[in-house]
Write a protein that binds this DNA or RNA. Structure first.
Lengths: 156, 156
DNA sequence: AGTGAAAAGGCTTTAAC
DNA sequence: GTTAAAGCCTTTTCACT
């Protein structure tokens, strides 16, 4: 899908505030609300826009800690991978999970209420998944950055 | 801040669709639009709601790959940490950065257009940051999960 | 606290450029 | 592709429970 500078400006505006009104967005990007609406619908249809969500403060919702877990599986068959993905999908505290190249097979980021909750999660959920050969946890001491996808034209 | 089941239901609704109207949210949670509006404003004020954003498809915006970089710094002084955080903040492709316990000091997730872009980023941006002792990159082969913070009462 | 109504404003469509 | 205008729906306030 081809996106011009107005589309990218609209996306950047939505990244900053997805609940802004169409006239606010239009004023930001230099367009009236009608073309903004048309462009947004087009991008939703095309799947460039996957949805709109809210940025919440984990600490105020009881999640004091973030843990990054590295996991290696016993074998690398498609079936094992699939089952591992399914098992992770069932654990609500798992916020991100990546299959990666390199020493470890998976990087998983989980939100935990505290260290007790972390211990419970590992014992009662993660370690019950069959096929885990090895895992290593790192507690997040500080989040240094939470960025948004940079939006600019490829040819600039 | 104390959140009751209605607050949590409103947040869950906003997680699913942050652009829903107040009447839609109200219908979902079993309230009229007025108390929904009041509760949302209260949660925005309190910082539970940090903002509203859009979920975009990175591939359609030209970012085909995700790389996770582990970085160790030369020393662990607060000043070095601060400067490293500042430098990362200036790199738009850095989407997440965590200071962690364990073998490595930082986990960084970056969005790259392709392997050439990755090489450029490392050489022209990341490796120019002073104080890096060691780093290791892992390419993401597949994203297995992208979850949202679980929202439920602590006492249930 | 919540509801419902009313005013103000914004969204979405149609039509015209 | 754009803008302008019309009708409708939503947001927001307010009075009342």
């Amino acid at each position: 899908m081809n996106l011009d500078k107005f589309d990218l400006a609209i996306l950047a505006s939505l990244q900053r505030n997805a609940r802004a009104s169409l006239s606010e967005i239009g004023a930001e990007v230099g367009l009236s609300s009608t073309p903004c609406w048309n462009r947004i619908k087009r991008m939703e249809q095309a799947g460039v826009i996957r949805g709109y969500t809210v940025d919440l403060d984990p600490a105020q919702l009881g999640y004091q800690d973030t843990v990054i877990v590295h996991v290696t599986l016993d074998d690398h068959s498609e079936q094992t991978l699939y089952e591992f993905g399914r098992a992770l999908a069932d654990i609500p505290e798992v916020l991100e999970a990546y299959l990666v190249s390199g020493d470890y097979d998976y990087y998983i980021r989980i939100a935990v209420r505290d260290t007790r909750d972390y211990e419970r999660l590992l014992r009662e959920r993660l370690y019950l998944i069959p096929g885990i050969r090895h895992s290593k946890s790192s507690f997040v001491l500080r989040q240094l950055k939470q960025g948004r996808l940079p939006l600019q034209r490829k040819d600039t």
